[in-house]
Nucleic acid binder design. Structure first.
Length: 140
RNA sequence: CGAGUAAGUCAGACAGUCGCGUGUGCAGGUGCCGAAAGGCCGCACAUGAGGAAAGUCCGGGCUCCACAGGGCAGGAUUGUGGGUAACGCCCACCGAAGGCGACUUCAGGGACAGUGCAACAGAGAGAUACCGCCGGUCUUUACCGGUAAGGGUGGAAAGGCGGGGUAAGAGCCCACCGGCAUCCAGGUGACUGGAUGGCCAUGUAAACCCAAUUCGGAGCAACACCGCAAAGAACUGUCCGAUUUUCGGACAACGCUUGCCCGGCGUAUGUUCAGGUAGGUGGCAUGAGCUGUUUGGCAACGGGCAGCCACAGAUAGAUGAUUGUCGAAUACAGAACCCGGCUUACAGACUUGGUCGCACC
RNA sequence: UGCGGGAUUGUGUAAAGGUAGCACGGCAGACUCUGACUCUGUUUGUCUGGGUUCGAAUCCUAGUCCCGCAG
């Protein structure tokens, strides 16, 4: 409620996308507020495998919001940055196939920063596909 | 050629495709928002982590608070001279210890200003005679006196060792070594060299302490500005009651309830000031700066001249993915207000100057 | 990011530079027909690396880990 102005501004940017709507899809906006993270951890559904934990729930914005988290136990700043970059890249490649209108939080587990990107891709696709969050149409 | 030593450099490069942050420019007669300025989106170009960015151990800049001046307390440092904005950092030198050597290491002031401690062992830890040695009393046991050469204890036992000397011994006397004091010479100085003197109280100051030097406190989540809130002050109008002024009380906006009125319910109280919460903006990238050259200095470093600054500036926090080539791309590791150091982590590659050993000329 | 505190046996907690204790726990024995309670004995430790000191849990220094505060 108190973050209303903040979200509104981001929402405006994303709700009015660029010209060719069919070529470039709606881009996810970052999830920033600590309260949003807490809501997802508490109320959201979760998907787990040995590399990553995904929390998600529906929002009413019509856009996806996404946050990436790496705990301090996993390593130093270099390792944590590595994990976030891997997850961000895999999410970017997977994003056109995602359904819209969800909040996501991706939590890295300790193995993830030492993997190749294809392994992270495979984890994301398997978990999200298993939860029926990917579009059925196989055009992309 | 081998071994060892000191100082220093680099920290993958190039090309293709997709993607991210920042800056600059362009452009869409309108793709979106806005009254406008402008912003978002788009395109192009430029640019985008380190030698330690780390630990947060020192020193500064900057900001706010405190402050006439001085002192006490408390903290820090500790050979000398220099460098520096400053330092607990750096350079050169002195001394000690180690190494054949190049070289390395050192919290390296004071223990005759004072206080404390030195467990156990040992007779005794600045105060002493256990055994022993010598002399005396004495039939002997034993007692009295002298003695630190020898034994034993200990990390440490009355400067060390040799000679003289003596009843036995002792710096009691002498030579050498070591230490202390005074004088002379050299050096800016730490100190070094020499002469003379007397023969001197062990260790511990990273125990209290003394001496000298030095230090106000907090930190960019500092601080400044804009500001929905809460608390506060002033003012205006209308209505009601007492009513001459005047005093007291209530109301003022929005939403819902059927389109409107009354009534009801909920939020909440008109205007201005003040305040400063949520939030936002600045602080924030031109700096004890970098590059080249010259010059003073053994060096650390300083001076002059020329050039450069679109050589990171985020705010959930930007450098990634993938393909190919190069011999191998494999270490430690990610800016968060900014600098100077220290410490710690670290694969591999390379350069330079000494040293030692072997062989050859 | 900044600031502050701590680490002693499996757990909790003592110890002025001089033999590292205490309680609970574990193990063994005694008691009991058996177990519990109780009694006796025993096991296990100064976070790590350097330094000062004759001697360090203690003093100094460098690191590791944990906790708290500001937000």
């Amino acid at each position: 409620m108190w973050s209303f102005c903040f979200v509104e501004k981001r929402l405006l940017r994303a709700a009015h996308p660029r010209i060719p709507k069919e070529v470039l899809p709606v881009q996810a906006i970052p999830l920033t507020r600590n309260t949003d993270f807490r809501r997802l951890y508490k109320r959201g559904r979760s998907l787990i495998d040995r590399n990553v934990v995904i929390y998600f729930s529906k929002n009413k914005l019509g856009v996806n919001r996404v946050g990436f988290t790496v705990g301090k136990k996993i390593g130093g700043a270099v390792v944590r940055n590595r994990a976030k970059r891997l997850m961000r890249e895999s999410f970017r490649l997977l994003e056109p196939r995602l359904r819209e209108g969800y909040d996501f939080v991706f939590v890295s587990r300790s193995r993830l920063p030492h993997l190749h990107r294809q392994a992270v891709d495979a984890s994301f696709a398997r978990l999200l596909g298993g939860a029926d969050l990917l579009k059925k149409e196989g055009s992309t």
